[in-house]
Structures are given as C-alpha cells and as structure tokens.
Design a protein around this nucleic acid. Structure first.
Lengths: 372, 372
DNA sequence: GTGAAAGCGCTAACAG
DNA sequence: CTGTTAGCGCTTTCAC
C-alpha cells in the first residue's frame, strides 16, 4: 500500500546503527552538531535504502505542509494556464506545491474547495479569475493568507494582482500616435466590465494628452466576441471622415473588425490600422498578424505567489511588522507586440514570443527567494 | 499556524460529551452501530464548531491520501490543460485531488517530481505528454499504479491513452471523399513522429479502400509549423493536375497551406479544400474556418484517470484478478468539426464546440463511478 | 452501543 | 555529540 512498504526513518536509523533523533537531524540538515562519521553513515544508509521522508508525518509534527491551494474557475479559461504556470514557477523556487481545484463559477463549489484545501492544511490560497469574494470570509476565519489574481469582479480590492489596463492601453495608443495616426477610434468591451471601462478611459485620456479630441462616433461598444467586433466596426465605417486606426479592446473583436473592414473592400493595415489587447495565440497566426498588448497572465500569477509567500512568512515569524499585512492591489502592465496589423516595422521590437512568460521567466525566477 | 488553531476531533467529542472513538465513527459514517441520539449530538457539535477533519492525520492512519500525482511536461503545452481538466473531472467524481508538477522535458526534474509525489504519498501517477519513460522504473519499485496520456515517444506501450490517429484520419478522408473529391493530397507531419506516420498510413489506406491510388507527388512533408505547411503546399501546387483537396496533419500547417494557396491566386475551399487535425482554437476564428478532426485531449485525460482508478482499486482490494493488471494501450478517436475550409454544409453537424470536453463532459461525468 | 488505548512516521524538547 | 520520549490528529482493534 501507499506508505505501507516504504522505508521509514526508523529503518534507516537502525541500519546506520544510530537513534531516530540522530537520523532525523542528519537528514534534515539540522544545525544540531553531528560527528562527520555519523552523518556519513546515516546519509549512506538512507541513500542505499532509497529513503523518502513521509511528508504527511512530518507535516503533522511541524504544522507546515509546504503546499498552497489554487482555486481557479476553470483550468480551460484562456488565461488560467499561464497564470497557474506563473504561480507554479514561483512555488518551485520555494519548494512548495500548489493544489489546484476548479470551482466552475459556482460559489458553493468554491466554498467546498476552500474547505477541502483547509483540510489538506494548505498554508495559503490563491484565487484565479474568481468571480466573487464571499469565500474570503472562511479564509479570514481560518487565519489563512490568500490572494486574488486577475479577479473579474468589482473595483480595486486588497490582496489582488490585476493587469494594468490604463498603462497597457497607453502603450497601444502611443504606438498608433507614433505611427502618425490622428483619427483613432475605439471598439470597447461591454461597459459592465471594469477592464472595459479602464481601457476606454485610458484611450480617451491618452488621446487627450496627445492633444487630440475624441470625436463623437469614435467609440463603439462590442461584446468581447468576434461578431461584436465586426458589428462595431461596421458602425465605425460610417464615420466621416473615417478613422485611420482602431484600438480594439480584445483580440477576438479585432479579428471581427478586420473581417468587417475587408468585407467593405478595404485593407488592414493599408487603409485602417488595427491594434488590440490580450495577445492570444490566434492573433499571431492570423493574417494580418495582430499588433496587440499582452495580458500578462504568467507574470500576474508569479507575482501573486510571491506576495502570498510574503504573507505566509509573516505568519511564520509572527513578526508584528509583517504579520498578516494586507497588500494594496498590484497592477502589472503587459507588453506591446508589434506585428502586421498596424503596418509598423516589426524590427522595432527584438522578439516575438506569444507567451510572455517564457521570455520573462528566467529573469523572474532569478528573483525568486531561497527557501528561508 | 496551519492546523494549529483548528478544531480537532477531540474537541468535538468533548463538546458532544462522547469519546473520541464515537465521534470518529459518527463523522465517518462508519457501519459501527451508534444510537440515533448520540449521532445527532456529535453531528450537531461538529457543525456548530465548524469541524474540518485533518486529512494528514487521517491519511497517516489509513494509508490512503485520496490524491494522485500528475506530471506534465509543461502546463502551457496546448493539449495539457484539457487533458488535465479531463483528469480533474474524473477525480472529482471519486473525491480525489491531483497534485500537478511540470517536468519541463527534463528527465532529472521528472525523477524529482516522482520522488516528491511519492513523499506526498499519492496513490498513483499520470504522466501527461511525457517524452520518456525511464521514470517508470521508480514507480514499479514503489508499487504505484501509473498511466501515460498522449505520450509522445515510441510505439505502443501498456498503460497509456493516445489519440486514435488511424480512425480520426479516416473520418477526415471519408468526409472529403463524400464531398466528391478524388484527387486528395496530404501534408504530413515529420516522419520521425509516430503520430505523423499513423496519419500518413491511414490517409493512404483509406484512399486505397475507396479505390483511389495515391499518385506520386501527393504527399509532402511539413514540420508541424505554419511555414512548413506553406512550403509543402507550394510543392503540392506543382502537381499536374493539381489535387482538389488536402488533408493536413495539423492545424498550424493548414493555416500555412491556405496562405500558400491564396498567394497562388486560388481560393479555399472554392479551388482547393483543406481539412486538418487537432481542432485548435485558432482554427475556429480563422477565415475560412478550419474543418478539422479534434485531438480528444479532454477525453483522453478523463479515461486515463478512470483506468488509474481501476488500478488503485485493484491494489486496495488485493483481489488477485485485478491486482496490478496492466492495460493495453487505449486509443480514443477525435470528432470531425465541419466548418468552412472544405465547403461542406456545416449543418451536417449539430454543434460546433471548440472544446470537445464541454460537449462530452456531462455524458462522461455521468459514467463516473461512485467512490467505493 | 460506547470507550480506552495503541500507533501511523516523524520532529523537538529534554536528558545525558 | 547522541539517545529517549512525548505527541501531532486520527482510526481501529479490543474490551466492556
């Protein structure tokens, strides 16, 4: 059975002719003094026997499990895998493991997931793209640190990591401005979404800062989907004189917009330039390839894990200064990927990775702390 | 700390005025007889106090953790998330949890992952898209059940779940044949890959079965990538008379092929029909949208979990008939998604989901067994 | 129908 | 420098 026939510490100790305590001290690199000989003997036996510590037993004594919980609405949501990979990569550096559960947008399942994770004695929980926060109640009661990544609800809240929509939008608009465009329209996301609002506001603010007044009719609202983008674009095509560039609030709508432009007998980017938001995979294989600013999923996950770890450490040390401190919302700005849909020279940027993570991973990992 | 201030079974027992043993029996629905009164009192206290069993302690006694390990090469590989989601959904039905670790194609990391998971006392391990099998050695020694899903190496091996390339290819070719095509070419994957070989063989066999002789020059080899697809297509365009339809071994190459066809001044599907393999997301938003047969990632994961569970149960019961039985390779056939690139009437099929999982999920879940 | 007690594998006092 | 021992929270004989 599971741990049944596996080698116990007692067996190693016996084989090495030392006590349980000594074996434990050696195998844990305890600072307790040990003679070089004894140490070698224990190490030798442990190796020879293929000793593998039983983490359950250890956790039981130490009250540390080196695990955290990850509650995602759905692993199959487009940004969830890179967010989780970011978390995992940070966790790896501190030798932690993440226990992942899908809540499928069901508050009851989310509550069940929390209970489950607490039963597994996780040391903290990260919510990925959670749609609600009723859950935190249980966490506060259980005294567990938690973080939200890319939460989809409401306004700014503490202990969350989100995309910097304002800054990212500015990146796009400035690029368009730099290309000489002056008549820049916007296909916005549904204004019930905070991210859609932020992008619209930043679009307006950035143009204003560039001395350009947004004309009526320059903003059309879509629904995040292909069809919505096409519909909004047809609307924009009526404006006279027509805009020469469009900032589209996500990649899906950008594809629809391009189709609408082509259906009207015009060319992208020749007649109208298109730039969007998200940096989804299909934007890279599309023709023309999308110029887009990334939603930095990987980095957000990585950062959330880092912050959670700080909280866990605060708990561990019981140092008043750090203990259970709440973080203000952290915003992370995506990166601009210059491809074909704006007509700019792609040589402006040095690389074209779909997954921002892979390019930044090494740098970030380098920053990861050693286990205490 | 973690389990520090949480409510223990002892506390519940005390509050209910019963012994530890009684409380345990009630809370575990043990078949040991308990008076209705006592049962109610224990349940009541447990509820009121918010009792949450400490799974670590329980596992320690019972040698069951209700966890399995999942070792994936990279969570960001395209098929990994749906495979894992399939696993998770099965696990959910049997109340198990999956511990996920990335091995990043590094055998050393994979070995480390195995050790780590064994230390966590997982009851089995599923390898997702693993590139090697040196690792199984350790598992055999540790007497742990394991399964491979969508393994990328070598020929057929036991205990693995893979796509049914032969059958899926037949689906595509038959569709093309049904549309009246007789000159059907193939853009193959690199022939170092088993899946590429299978698809090529099945392409040839299915045409032969339809009474069509594959002409020399009808098969061009690509490299799984966009550019390779375009290059192979340019080659195919030289054939005289040209093929009227192409089966492309994956979606990426199909996009390249379509671009090459358009660059030659021809139209898809009007002049040449394109059908491919994988059913990646971008194929659905592309114009023309790809007709493609899916790689049934979700179902493969689900099935692998199901088989692993059978093995675990075999271990548990120690019933000689089932104990540690090895399974022959299981093949799962994808589904044909009829869209625009072949010119067929999409009404031929009833739905168009990108994620096969979502359509099949309910049916599959329905099949999931109750916990023993 | 209920309870007392042993013990899973390990770590951390405490004693020498 | 090494060893003995208590006990983490739970399940499960065994006795009543």
């Amino acid at each position: 059975m599971s741990t049944g026939l596996s080698i116990t510490l007692a067996a190693v100790a016996r084989a090495a002719g030392v006590s349980l305590a000594t074996a434990s001290r050696v195998l844990n690199n305890s600072d307790h003094p040990i003679s070089t000989k004894t140490r070698a003997r224990v190490l030798q036996s442990a190796n020879a026997m293929g000793y593998r510590p039983n983490l359950l037993a250890r956790s039981m004594r130490t009250d540390r499990t080196y695990t955290i919980g990850i509650i995602a609405d759905d692993l199959l949501s487009p940004f969830t895998p890179p967010i989780i990979r970011g978390i995992q990569d940070y966790l790896k550096a501190i030798d932690y493991l993440g226990l992942i559960i899908n809540s499928d947008w069901d508050p009851a399942l989310e509550q069940a997931a929390i209970n489950r994770l607490l039963s597994h004695a996780v040391e903290g929980i990260i919510f990925v793209e959670s749609g609600h926060l009723a859950a935190t109640q249980a966490l506060v009661e259980a005294q567990k640190p938690y973080m939200f990544v890319h939460r989809l609800f409401g306004a700014s809240i503490q202990n969350s990591v989100v995309p910097d929509d304002v800054q990212a939008t500015r990146l796009v608009i400035d690029h368009l401005l730099g290309l000489g465009h002056r008549r820049i329209a916007h296909i916005a996301g549904p204004q019930g979404w905070h991210s859609a609002q932020r992008r619209l506001e930043s679009y307006q603010a950035t143009l204003a800062a560039g001395g350009i007044a947004v004309e009526p009719g320059w903003v059309a609202e879509g629904n995040w989907e292909y069809d919505g983008g096409a519909g909004a674009m047809r609307q924009l095509l009526q404006v006279n004189p027509p805009p020469t560039a469009i900032f589209v609030a996500n990649d899906y709508m950008a594809l629809g917009a391009i189709a609408a432009i082509q259906a009207a007998g015009l060319q992208v980017p020749h007649d109208i330039a298109i730039a969007s938001y998200d940096n989804r995979e299909f934007g890279r294989v599309h023709h023309p390839a999308l110029t887009t600013v990334s939603l930095p999923a990987y980095e957000m996950g990585f950062r959330a894990a880092e912050l959670l770890w700080q909280k866990i450490q605060g708990d561990l040390t019981d140092h008043p200064a750090t203990h259970r401190a709440d973080f203000d919302e952290v915003k992370i700005c995506g990166q601009l990927y210059i491809r074909e849909s704006c007509g700019a020279d792609p040589a402006q940027q040095t690389h074209d990775e779909l997954d921002v993570g892979t390019t930044v991973r090494h740098r970030l990992i380098g920053k990861a702390p050693e286990r205490e």
